[in-house]
Design a protein around this nucleic acid. Structure first.
Length: 986
RNA sequence: GGGCGAUUGGCGCAGCGGGAGCGCAGGGCCCUUACAAGGCCAAGGUCACUGGUUCAAAUCCAGUAUCGCCCACCA
């Protein structure tokens, strides 16, 4: 473990690194140094940035004038970190860190959401333990309790982000109930109200009887549940009079049938009905209890079965109330019985039918879904009890014809899973169509891009079919609707400031009791937090703000005037930071939040809130079930960090980010990542132990040796791959490339090759040392966004900072490797040659394993090469091959006789012999060679067939043909050698 | 009812037009002074199915099947 002096520069050599990487030993202190170093708070200078934006091309190349900004999706104050957060915030931190290293002022704005329903539920639960309800303590005291709750629990999730290593700007932590944020929400409401986009209306809305509040359509989740379709017959009365005598008489017969079978055949009813000369109309419903609020029975106008009945009435059973039979296109003749009961107060469709036919609206439920006095004898029953009793009574009365199994989807509250009641009530709505149109346009023309792109279609579909948004909530915790009423003169207005007396008649006014949907306030998050620095939003035009900012930010904020709109939100700071760069989020809040931010951003700031929307996969557990605390299927990221370290968790998550929409979370990947961290740690230990006392700058080495040229070429490749992958949000690809480079290229081959060379001539040793440090340095830079802790810890100890004076060097702000600086290090020739070396080493190792020769036993081996140039090369590399395969007496030549007692391996252009005096099992060798020969022959046949195909030769790309020809030739040579070997063995 | 995604070795996943890869598990050998959270070696797949496009298909198109997600006012 590195000790506390690790911060000193260039003292790699002074410290002992522990044998295994221990995340706990370093994470906290590293995080502290980042924070103390002020690296999280890179606020771009408004003047500089505004200048740069105005100058356009002049400063476009200067990253320091090109800020990189992300506003975090604010987690709920009630929340604690779950896997979705862990994934989402790792993505954002990777982007922020990469861009910060690339020299851009990077700022990740952080904060929490007041989460109206969720928080209110928590506080109510707490009160319930004391035997209290919110009504017992009153609105004001309740809101105080909510603030109290927030100050006790609100920092939890922020601390968890810190544990993950997220480099947010914690100096300014926002809360969606901050006074200035409240004011911003109010501005938005009043603006839309005054423009007529916000209106009040009595509608069927989604009501949660447990939370006792309205919800928007997208806050309702649908679950398929087993249910029943009840067929109920309503007796027809022609004159609006009563058919009760007969019906009562008949009902006893029916009741007997019903109790014995619970299923009454249609024919017997018809028969009896005819006999009694009473007509019935049978409706089908899944919710028999709502019949108490029925005001009509509807049939399709073209339906022959019922044509004659339209205009007549039926007697509503149990309520003894005549209601009309109407005709409406909405009815599907083929569903159920083709007749539909109309309950305008408890079904959105029925409501519309009711409107068309001027029917009354009978609301039979109170806010807790208990039957009201409108429900007659059923008053006071819950909806569940009412259903039970009504079904029993219908059956007893002979009205129940049939009960059919009918699975159907039930809407439930997204916060408490209680079944939603469609309920008629007066609520506030936003007219969405005018807002949606420009928001569709900016995605269509590519100003806002979704990643993966397919989500754009989901967005379009929803936006093009958008419906008005119910924004009022019957809660106490939240942004109170700023509409004031005068009961004296009916004066009403939406106001930015509170008011106590009516401006018309001086009577006392009252404010609307409801609060706003939490998503109403979160939709303005990007511009509210970026533009709202002083507490009161500045109102000035974008052009004015930009101009003023370039002169003097303070002048601008003091002198903003009204621009070309009633007001816009352009403060100088907003002008500098907005639009933000990326928004990363889960698919489930695409509509709830992302779409609405685009709409409100365009409307209030005249600009998109972000350029790129990253929709990351939803995290499921290994069995494909949703991660959920209540189901016990969740995994706690804190536990994972405990086991694998923050870096292990982050990297393990990044490995799993691909273009798919669901991610079955695989903890094995975290284990791999922890092991990966340990591998890097130990590679660094090796470098430390072998670069004792050296000092160097960070200039690239001038490689001469093949191995150095090779690893630098691989590094150059990595720089390109990782940069491009992160920039295109391909996190899985970037992490796999890093993994492969560190583990395979650097550790398995380069370090192994370096071992011998470190004991060589001083110049050789120096070259290796230089290369080791240079490669490790740059690879750590590339790794840093994904694994910030371990990379920082190791990097600080590298002997590259010896010439740095003053500020403490920190990887978090080290320069991101530039592709153009590395381009010259690409070396195709070196890569090909090292492949040859690998082939020889692998062949020798394979033979050793086959004959179970101890690694300590030196092999006696010889390589017969086909080409002279390969011979020269392998002769040069002989010492290293000898070392990697423990084959000291290695002979390489073009013309080399096969030793009598030897095992042979045929590789591309090579025959590799291992001398095995008395050990060779000729039968086994023969079997192996035969297998090898057959495989080669088969492979060759495939290529020969391809190469004799005229279509292929005519149409395939020349380089492909060339490649295949070369491959076929290689195979032919190999085959010949194998044949010869077999012939020799008889 | 509409849309989207997935189907590749025992498990979890990459690859998305030109010679089937990774991690984990399992097998053999090895505590070789960076790392046993490791090294080396070997084994394991007709890339769901059926057609089509193409010189060439795991990869593109169409259809089928299975699983999953989202949207939708058929009671």
């Amino acid at each position: 473990m590195l000790n506390q002096t690790s911060f000193e520069k260039g003292h790699f050599v002074d410290r002992e690194m522990s044998k295994a990487y221990d995340p706990k030993a370093i994470e906290e202190s590293i995080f502290t140094t980042w924070q103390k170093g002020g690296h999280f708070e890179q606020s771009p200078s408004a003047e500089d940035i505004t200048k740069s934006r105005e100058a356009g091309d002049v400063s476009a190349d200067d990253p320091s004038l090109n800020p990189y900004v992300i506003t975090i999706p604010p987690p709920n104050v009630t929340g604690s970190l779950h896997m979705g957060h862990a994934l989402n915030n790792t993505i954002q931190d990777v982007l922020i860190r990469k861009n910060r290293m690339a020299g851009r002022p990077a700022r990740w704005v952080v904060g929490t959401d007041h989460a109206g329903i969720a928080t209110q539920n928590k506080v109510e639960q707490k009160l319930a333990k004391e035997g209290l309800t919110r009504f017992d303590i009153g609105r004001e005291a309740f809101i105080d309790k909510c603030w109290e709750w927030r100050s006790e629990h609100g920092s939890q999730i922020i601390n968890q982000l810190k544990a993950m290593g997220c480099s947010c700007d914690y100096d300014r932590e926002w809360f969606t109930m901050d006074p200035s944020y409240q004011q911003a929400v109010r501005e938005v409401f009043v603006e839309w109200f005054n423009r007529g986009l916000i209106y009040r209306g009595t509608r069927i809305i989604n009501w949660c009887p447990r939370c006792t509040t309205a919800l928007s359509d997208i806050e309702v989740e649908h679950e398929d549940k087993p249910g029943k379709l009840y067929h109920v017959r309503y007796p027809v009365v022609s004159d609006g009079g009563h058919a009760s005598e007969v019906s009562t008489c008949r009902s006893r017969d029916l009741a007997r049938h019903a109790t014995s079978e619970n299923h009454i055949s249609e024919s017997s009813i018809t028969h009896n009905a005819e006999a009694e000369d009473i007509q019935y109309i049978t409706i089908a419903t899944t919710r028999p209890e709502t019949m108490l609020g029925d005001v009509a029975v509807a049939v399709h106008p073209e339906d022959e079965r019922y044509k004659d009945l339209v205009g007549k009435s039926v007697l509503l059973p149990l309520m003894d109330k005549p209601i009309p039979i109407i005709a409406d296109d909405y009815v599907e003749p083929d569903f159920g019985t083709g007749a539909l009961k109309i309950t305008p107060a408890h079904d959105a469709n029925d409501f519309e039918v009711g409107e068309r036919h001027n029917l009354p609206q009978v609301n039979i439920f109170d806010k807790e879904a208990v039957v009201t006095t409108e429900g007659g004898a059923y008053e006071g029953l819950s909806r569940e009890d009412a259903r039970e009793k009504i079904v029993a009574d219908l059956q007893a009365g002979g009205y129940l014809v049939e009960i059919e199994e009918h699975p159907h989807s039930v809407g439930v509250c997204y916060r408490c899973a209680t079944a939603i009641e469609p309920w008629l009530s007066e609520q506030w709505f936003v007219d969405m169509k005018p807002l949606a149109e420009p928001a569709i346009e900016v995605v269509r023309d590519g100003q806002v891009k979704f990643h993966p792109k397919r989500w754009e279609n989901v967005y379009f579909h929803w936006m093009e079919n958008i419906r008005d948004w119910c924004i009022s909530r019957q809660l106490w915790w939240g942004h109170r609707i700023p509409v004031f009423y005068c009961d004296g003169c009916n004066w009403t207005a939406a106001l930015k400031e509170d008011l106590s007396v009516c401006p018309e008649c001086a009577a006392p006014v009252r404010q609307d009791e409801d609060v706003l949907d939490t998503w109403f306030s979160s939709q303005i998050w990007p511009f509210a937090v970026l533009g709202n620095t002083s507490g009161t939003p500045a109102h000035c035009s974008r052009d004015f703000a930009r101009h003023a900012a370039s002169e003097s930010p303070s002048y601008a904020s003091q002198n903003c005037n009204k621009g070309d709109k009633p007001f816009t939100w352009f403060t100088p700071e907003l002008a500098a930071n907005y639009p933000t760069n990326a928004l990363s989020t889960a698919p489930d809040i695409l509509f709830l939040w992302v779409a609405r931010m685009i709409m409100s951003g365009l409307d209030f700031v005249d600009d998109i809130p972000f350029h790129d929307v990253i929709i990351h996969p939803t995290v499921f557990n290994k069995e494909g079930r949703r991660m959920s605390k209540s189901l016990g299927t969740g995994v706690d990221p804190l536990d994972l960090m405990e086991h694998y370290g923050a870096d292990g968790m982050r990297f393990g998550l990044m490995l799993q980010v691909t273009g798919v929409q669901d991610m079955k979370f695989d903890e094995d990947k975290l284990l791999s990542s922890r092991n990966f961290a340990n591998k890097i740690w130990n590679a660094a230990r090796f470098v430390q132990m072998n670069t004792d006392g050296i000092q160097m700058g960070d200039a690239p080495p001038q490689p001469e040796a093949l191995a150095d040229r090779w690893i630098l070429s691989r590094l150059a490749h990595l720089v390109e791959r990782v940069t491009e992958s992160i920039d295109s949000f391909a996190f899985g690809e970037a992490s796999r490339d890093l993994y492969g480079f560190f583990w395979n290229d650097f550790c398995d081959w380069y370090i192994e090759l370096a071992k011998g060379r470190l004991n060589g001539e001083p110049e050789e040793r120096a070259a290796v040392q230089h290369t080791l440090v240079f490669v490790l340095d740059n690879a750590l830079r590339l790794l840093h966004p994904m694994m910030p802790y371990i990379s920082e810890e190791i990097w600080r100890g590298l002997p590259i900072h010896a010439d740095v004076s003053g500020a403490e060097p920190s990887l978090i702000v080290a320069q991101w490797p530039k592709q153009e600086d590395f381009a010259t290090l690409r070396d195709v020739d070196a890569e090909r040659r090292i492949e040859l070396l690998k082939a020889v080493v692998s062949a020798l190792r394979s033979t050793r394993a086959r004959y179970q020769i101890s690694p300590r036993t030196e092999l006696e081996a010889s390589v017969k090469v086909g080409k002279k140039s390969d011979g020269t090369l392998l002769q040069e590399l002989a010492p290293q091959i000898a070392q990697l395969a423990n084959a000291s007496k290695l002979q390489v030549d073009v013309d080399l006789a096969k030793p009598a007692q030897s095992a042979v391996t045929v590789a591309t252009g090579l025959e590799i012999y291992v001398h095995l005096e008395g050990l060779v099992d000729f039968e086994a060798e023969k079997a192996r060679l035969t297998k090898e020969r057959d495989k080669t022959a088969k492979e060759l046949a495939k290529f020969d067939k391809k190469l004799s195909n005229e279509g292929f030769l005519a149409k395939a790309a020349p380089e492909i043909i060339e490649k295949d020809r070369a491959k076929a030739d290689d195979l032919r040579v190999a085959l010949a050698k194998l044949e010869a070997q077999l012939a020799e063995q008889g």
